[in-house]
Simulated scan of single mutants.
Amino acid sequence: MKIVSWNINSVRFRIGIVEQFLREASPDILCLQETKVIDGDFPAAPFRALGYDHILIHGQRMHHGVAIVSRVPLVEDDRFDWQANKEARHIGVRLPNGVRLENVYVPAGGDIPDRDLNPKFGQKLDFVQRMTDWSAKLDCPTILTGDFNIAPLPSDVWSHKALLKVVSHTPIEVEALDRLKASNDWVDLGRHFYPAPARLHSWWSYRSPDWTKNDRGRRLDHMWATGEVAKAARAHHVFEACRAWEKPSDHVPIMTEFDF
């Protein structure tokens, strides 16, 4: 089974490259973040035309939004409010084999890494803490994937030194994500297959006039699994070429192949 995560940054605006990716990579399940569309306007028809008949969505006008589209049946969906303000940032399902799949869009956190000066940064840290509280009580095989908006390792960013005070790579964010990871012994599948310091970026800013030239990337997108599920993982891919497609997202898809 091939499972993909992709922050698409508006699914309607970029439906063309979504269709292209599905034809080329042929995943079984696609988890999308930042869909930026209410449920009633989600473009389901293009997905169904490609065989993705199972569509679960948690949308929001203009901002946020997550979705899971699949060629295999999905059941028991849930929507956790880890932001505590009803933003559409999570959707979870159960796969036919009983494994849970949780798709999450962690807040970016604004520009200033100080919760007193920047409430958005505090909201981000609180969001990750709520995830950690949930994770500590988790007692079923689970895959946790999405845009975590944190690059935890020095090799997860183009310059560890330059980004230590930049939101997404600050020590306090990294420590928060480390606590989440330790709360259930999660396996970071990207780093399982590509151990640090291998380059494994998944995001490049739109602000760069030529993202390929300076290559100032960060690994913000992740796929984690609980222990037994991680043993079934066979390969992991980062589709960097998608960043150069027409009307690209600033994120690229990541995919893990599982032997189930």
Rank of each mutant, 00 (worst) to 15 (best):
Y52W: 12
N103M: 03
G40V: 13
R89I: 03
H222Y: 10
A196V: 06
R243Q: 11
E257D: 13
S10W: 05
R219N: 02
I254Q: 00
F258A: 04
S183W: 05
F127C: 08
A232N: 13
Y206S: 09
L180W: 04
D221H: 04
Q129H: 13
R115F: 08
K36E: 03
Q60M: 05
M1G: 06
T142P: 11
R89Q: 04
L138P: 05
A241M: 04
R191N: 08
F258T: 09
H58P: 01
F260D: 07
F127M: 03
A88D: 02
A182C: 01
D77K: 09
E228S: 15
T142Q: 06
D39G: 11
D133I: 13
R48A: 13
S159P: 03
E76S: 14
Y105I: 03
R12W: 08
H201S: 01
V128Y: 01
R179I: 05
R207E: 14
M255L: 14
G51N: 13
D53Q: 14
H222P: 02
D116M: 11
H58W: 12
N97Q: 07
R179D: 07
Q20W: 14
G40N: 14
M223I: 15
R79I: 09
N149F: 04
L32R: 05
I15P: 11
P154H: 06
Q83E: 09
L220Y: 07
D215C: 04
H64M: 05
D111G: 11
E34M: 05
L50Y: 12
G40W: 03
D185L: 04
M223G: 01
V167F: 01
K161I: 03
A232I: 00
R130L: 08
D81S: 11
I8R: 06
G217I: 02
I143Y: 07
A225M: 06
D114C: 10
D210S: 12
A244D: 13
P197S: 08
K36S: 06
Q123F: 12
D178N: 14
I172G: 00
A230E: 09
S135W: 01
L144N: 06
Q83W: 15
Y52K: 07
F127A: 01
L220R: 10
H58A: 12
A233L: 02
R130P: 08
H251E: 06
F80Y: 11
V4L: 08
A196G: 08
V72P: 07
D185S: 13
P96W: 09
R23L: 14
A25M: 11
R130C: 10
L177W: 03
W82V: 00
P73I: 07
L95G: 07
P107Y: 05
S159K: 02
E240V: 12
H201N: 05
Q129I: 00
L32W: 12
T226P: 10
D133Y: 08
H236A: 15
A235N: 15
G16M: 10
L74K: 05
S70Y: 04
H54L: 09
D147V: 05
L177Q: 05
R219V: 02
E24Q: 15
D126Y: 02
S5L: 08
